[in-house]
Design a protein around this nucleic acid. Structure first.
Length: 272
DNA sequence: AGCCAGGGTCTGC
DNA sequence: GCAGACCATGGC
């Protein structure tokens, strides 16, 4: 990976196993949209970003080298050796097929609270609608940014709201879960900051104390929001893959990185 | 129109 | 411990 400062921002070259479209549109993050020029726009860690991928590399617009180091390098998981990881996964023929069709999917490192809240919203829901609910939540309760965007509202802000306050967001029965999560995070009954380092089962048990958080939402929070690559979310699609191809569990080559393997399998199975 | 969605809770056996 | 109803909403 090589980083170049250009007049408009930064150019990242020599990235292997990085496909921006797949990464931002594979159901792990819900705040990115692609414009007519093929460029993605989104908000994470309180910053708006315009980013696109061309034959030249990855272009991050209006981003300083400092901001890249502080936020985006980690967010896009640029320091992980996906090439080596995929070589390991390819010991399994199904994973090899999935990776062959959709190389370049990366698991983002998102903010814990946003991830937790987003995946509470995801329950029994479809991706287009999840995006709509998250967008309204941010527009109604996030902090405005210069770019006409909004930050993801912090837990302390949501914790003070009532179910009626959340009605315009149209989250349905999930509203009470969002508020319970916000209150437990805001008052310290659940500590998100420790989840990246605790033994994974302790982290799981802490998360499922929140109403509306079961195994699936907990695994998604740990994988996408706490950098726990061994977390393994099983949704309806992955459940199909497991029953059809892995009745005895994932192969050994996925050990320690079950969540990343899951991301390839999820996308593979969902694209029929 | 009806089925389904990156599920979880609550109830009843 | 486990199956089944139920939950709000809207995309397809």
């Amino acid at each position: 990976m090589k980083i170049f400062e250009i007049p408009d921002g930064l150019l990242i070259k020599e990235l292997n196993c990085f496909d921006l479209d797949l990464t931002l549109d594979c159901g792990q993050a819900f705040r990115w949209r692609k414009n007519d020029a093929g460029c993605w726009h989104g908000v994470a860690f309180g910053k708006a970003l315009d980013i696109c991928q061309t034959g030249e590399g990855l272009m991050l617009f209006h981003v300083s080298a400092d901001e890249f180091e502080d936020i985006w390098r980690s967010y896009f998981d640029l320091d992980r050796d996906y090439s080596g990881l995929c070589d390991t996964f390819c010991a399994d023929s199904n994973l090899k097929s999935a990776i062959g069709l959709f190389p370049g999917i990366r698991v983002l490192r998102q903010e814990p609270w946003e991830t937790l809240c987003s995946f509470i919203i995801s329950q029994n829901n479809n991706i287009p609608r999840i995006k709509g609910i998250v967008e309204r939540l941010c527009a109604d309760f996030g902090e405005p940014l210069i770019s006409d965007d909004f930050t993801f509202p912090c837990a302390e802000k949501i914790a003070k709201l009532s179910i009626e306050d959340l009605a315009p967001v149209r989250a349905g029965f999930r509203s009470k879960y969002i508020i319970d999560a916000a209150q437990k995070v805001a008052n310290g009954k659940v500590s998100l900051s420790g989840l990246n380092s605790k033994p994974i089962n302790e982290a799981r048990n802490e998360l499922i104390r929140i109403k509306g958080v079961g195994a699936k939402v907990a695994e998604c929070t740990l994988l996408y929001g706490c950098g726990r690559s061994e977390a393994f979310p099983v949704d309806v699609w992955v459940k199909r893959v497991m029953s059809e191809l892995y009745p005895d569990g994932l192969p050994d080559c996925a050990e320690g990185f079950q969540g990343i393997a899951q991301q390839y399998l999820f996308h593979w199975r969902r694209q029929q």
